[in-house]
Computed example of a mutant assay.
Amino acid sequence: MQLRKKIDRILGRTLAIIMSIMVINVLWQVFTRFIVGSPSSFTDELARYLMIWVGVLGAAYISGKNMHVAIDLIPKKLNQKKQAKLKAFVNAIIILFCFFALVVGGSRLVYITYTLQQHSPALQIPLALVYLVIPISGLLIIFYKVSDILNKK
């Protein structure tokens, strides 16, 4: 549980930093567009990539806090033993999805964009860095769900 709390803290701070950078970036865009009259060329792209990171890492963070959207009609009708089995089954499905879609699929996307040396138009950063958040988030969600299964959360 100590490791989980540490990861929660690091992930929460990372998300707060990314959001802060995103706010400053958008404020800069508004300032350069309406005050200076010459919009900054990189801010739109940076905001887009930061939003991707916030969304995908935020999904992992919320998954770890078990605050994600869920339909709980069926579990409410079951006894506690069956609820625990259902939660373990749902967590196993989530683990499989995250492994195949986010970790494997995301890693392939990172590899392909890295191999093809694709760069963003305005920032000229490798797109592999932008897409790297997908397998990272998948691994984090898998960690959280395995932890939930082991701790019977």
Rank of each mutant, 00 (worst) to 15 (best):
residue 105 G to I: 01
residue 131 Y to A: 10
residue 120 S to E: 03
residue 93 I to E: 03
residue 23 V to Q: 02
residue 136 I to M: 09
residue 132 L to K: 13
residue 153 K to C: 00
residue 61 Y to E: 03
residue 8 D to M: 15
residue 129 L to H: 15
residue 12 G to K: 01
residue 80 Q to Y: 07
residue 57 L to V: 02
residue 136 I to F: 07
residue 92 A to T: 13
residue 61 Y to M: 00
residue 130 V to T: 14
residue 107 S to Y: 10
residue 39 P to L: 07
residue 26 V to R: 09
residue 17 I to L: 08
residue 26 V to Y: 13
residue 9 R to E: 00
residue 23 V to A: 08
residue 49 Y to T: 00
residue 19 M to F: 14
residue 27 L to G: 12
residue 24 I to S: 08
residue 108 R to L: 12
residue 122 A to F: 09
residue 126 P to L: 12
residue 60 A to F: 10
residue 140 L to Y: 04
residue 66 N to R: 15
residue 8 D to Q: 14
residue 116 L to N: 11
residue 2 Q to H: 11
residue 62 I to H: 08
residue 106 G to N: 10
residue 134 I to P: 11
residue 52 I to K: 05
residue 4 R to S: 14
residue 97 F to D: 04
residue 112 I to M: 07
residue 94 I to Y: 04
residue 5 K to D: 15
residue 24 I to C: 06
residue 6 K to V: 05
residue 132 L to H: 15
residue 91 N to L: 06
residue 110 V to W: 09
residue 78 L to V: 02
residue 3 L to D: 01
residue 18 I to T: 04
residue 109 L to E: 03
residue 106 G to T: 14
residue 13 R to T: 13
residue 66 N to C: 08
residue 81 K to C: 10
residue 144 Y to F: 12
residue 8 D to K: 11
residue 45 E to F: 10
residue 63 S to C: 00
residue 28 W to E: 03
residue 107 S to P: 10
residue 71 I to M: 07
residue 108 R to V: 09
residue 133 V to E: 11
residue 151 N to P: 05
residue 86 L to A: 04
residue 131 Y to D: 13
residue 84 A to I: 14
residue 87 K to N: 06
residue 106 G to L: 02
residue 25 N to G: 04
residue 1 M to C: 11
residue 59 A to P: 05
residue 122 A to L: 06
residue 70 A to Q: 04
residue 85 K to M: 08
residue 136 I to R: 04
residue 71 I to S: 03
residue 97 F to N: 05
residue 40 S to K: 01
residue 145 K to L: 01
residue 94 I to F: 00
residue 116 L to D: 13
residue 7 I to Q: 09
residue 75 P to L: 08
residue 108 R to Q: 07
residue 141 I to C: 01
